[in-house]
Amino acid sequence: MFEARLVNSATFKKILDAIKDLLDQASFDCSESGIQLQAMDNSHVSLVSLNLKSDGFDKYRCDRSLTMGMNLASLSKVFRCSGSDDTVTIKAQDDADTVTFMFESKKQEKISDYEMKLMNLDQEHLGIPETEFSCIIKMPSAEFARIVRDLSQFGESIVISCTKEGVKFSTQGDIGTGNVKLAQTNNFDKEEESVIIDMQEPVSLTFACQYLNLFTKATPLSNQVTLSMCDNVPLVVEYQIPDLGHLCYYLAPKIEE
């Protein structure tokens, strides 16, 4: 028996919004420790890794580990039926081929449930090696989304260059070029608004705008985003989900042939 209850169903909806444009389907691996998902996009350029810890849920029970393969467009339809203040309970029997979502309104005057068919997905888990990153940049997630959106108008790629002075995002295209430089802030009072750079050595890497834009769909999950970079290694874009876990995106760089 698997049962997970989250008072704030809107959080799950935000997680879904953050992955559904990148992934058509994905397996949710449920165990005693929580729910994990790892999946590549169709083009195998990026990887999504979601980790929700069991004690972040308001109720969590997982007697036997199970993998639930889901079509994310279908799952979005289910969550479109939930109210923003609803509580969600996710339930599945061991070896079941369906999963049930129950939504309860705040005062419990409305209770709805949706049963969805599960899929058998041929899933391949990738090993993510431990990396000593050259640069780790922590910045407001809304600012990152804004920069990626702005620069995407001009070119297909963004060069992210980090030095101890700051981080620079650059693009070039048919109509010209664009650069955004962010300096490290000294505003320690407001951690949410600060740009913090932890640099071992300078690094400059090129990434496809299309994927960066899809990652920024996670912006509503967290005020801050962390970008971790190292030469010739995928970029890690990490959003912490308060009290529940984290959502990480890995993006392969564009490299000179």
Partner: peptide
């Protein structure tokens, strides 16, 4: 000329 790498050229199946 830059070419897009695949994520599987960095991360291998477990």
């Amino acid at each position: 000329k830059l070419s897009q790498k695949s994520i599987t050229s960095f991360f291998k199946p477990n």
